[in-house]
Design a protein around this nucleic acid. Structure first.
Lengths: 125, 125
DNA sequence: GAAAGTGGTTTCCATTTGGATACTACAACC
DNA sequence: GGTTGTAGTATCCAAATGGAAACCACTTTC
């Protein structure tokens, strides 16, 4: 019997290393429980205040919303504008760069919808 | 001056609620530092052993790999087959259902590659 | 019989994450 | 002058996450 050492050559290709690195890069910006929710909300309805977001995103608290928004702003995915209004308001919106995530987030939502359907189907059996 | 109460009606639509719920559903399966890496690796090179994955995925340890694989298997995204070989080998591969994540993961990788490019560009300035 | 390779589990620990609550500060409304 | 609404910050705490190292059981190779 041959004792070939098969080292699973498949992913040793540079293409795949780049791909894996890319996934890591992307997730370093997008990880966390709320990032996709916030981005998804801001892509749908632009120009929302802090309290708007707090109401829209079910379950999030002020601390997390504040922190996640700062992260996203720092990475230029979300912009924050302090408005010169009477009781000072702040407007959050998706940046042009943030919009490049639209197709990704659409895919995620699409997959999530199908997933829920499949779970319901299984439940019926 | 009118004091209209604008309650940011945008995302109150059922469409958006479904969308947000879907994002939450999807992330409940895909959250964690390594899920996308593992799925991405298995989509590229099917049929990999535990040690193969450990080598392919840079930085992961045995505990996390073991745990994440169990999660993914439980959700039918990855299959685990114990082979009847001399020093017992196990083969992990992506399931048909797991393959429905291909476009999503491709999008993620694509975005990550562009992101890295843009960071490098900024660095040059 | 020791080393190396398979596929993990277990234990311990530090860091991260995230939730609840309280609080500030300002202005308008009543 | 008390309540409401805006936009957060601060603090405390619990739970989840994740890494390092040791260990197990088995087999083949040296």
């Amino acid at each position: 019997m041959m004792s070939m050492k098969k080292n699973a050559e498949i992913n040793t290709s540079p293409v795949c290393q780049v791909r894996m690195q890319a996934i890591g890069d992307a997730m370093s910006l997008l990880s966390g429980k709320w990032k996709f929710h916030i981005l998804g909300t801001l892509i749908e309805g632009s120009r929302l205040g802090f309290m708007d977001l707090l109401r829209e995103i079910d379950g999030i608290g002020t601390k997390m919303l504040s922190k996640e928004l700062q992260d996203l702003e720092m990475n230029n995915l979300v912009s924050r504008t302090v408005m010169n209004t009477k009781p000072i308001t702040v407007e959050y919106s998706i940046t042009e760069y943030g919009k490049t995530l639209s197709t990704l987030i659409d895919e995620l939502a699409k997959w999530g919808i199908e997933y829920r359907k499949s779970v319901i189907e299984k439940g019926k059996k």
